[in-house]
Design a protein around this nucleic acid. Structure first.
Length: 130
DNA sequence: CTTCTAACA
DNA sequence: TGTTAGTA
């Protein structure tokens, strides 16, 4: 890891600063944490400490939400993102093709309850695999 | 004064 | 999500 990334992962920002930087309410920021969309560190006094990477993640979550994607959809996107990175690591022996991923994602998407029409459109719009 | 958890008129 | 109560 390079120094630059080390700084981005350094948790030092209190929730108040994060609120101003993201235009999100404390309620929303804490709720997204409850949904495991962001996992800030904690100070000795149990205060949340965010990193620049956390800020980016929150802004990203906010964008998806603005586009009509719900919590389930966002979690799904990150779940896939991690899965894709995992595949990229052992790409030596298990090179799952984009075509395969697309089929799998499509199946799971169709079985994902709670996603209304606008969500489905946004889902496709933001999913690099579709 | 700022943040935290829990709860709901 | 907003908001508020009672803390730390």
């Amino acid at each position: 890891m390079k120094g630059k990334e080390l700084l981005r992962s350094r948790s030092v920002l209190p929730i108040g600063t994060v609120m101003k930087l993201t235009n999100l309410t404390a309620r929303q920021i804490r709720y997204y944490e409850e949904q495991e969309l962001v996992l800030p560190d904690r100070s000795e006094g149990n205060r949340r400490l965010y990193s620049l990477n956390d800020i980016d993640r929150l802004l990203e979550v906010k964008d998806y939400l603005d586009d009509g994607i719900n919590m389930a959809g966002i979690k799904e996107i990150y779940r896939q993102r991690r899965q894709k990175q995992a595949s990229k690591r052992h790409e030596e022996n298990k090179p799952l093709t984009d075509s395969d991923l697309r089929r799998i994602l499509h199946d799971e998407f169709m079985n994902l309850g709670g996603l209304d029409t606008p969500d489905q459109q946004s889902f496709r719009t933001h999913n690099p695999l579709m």
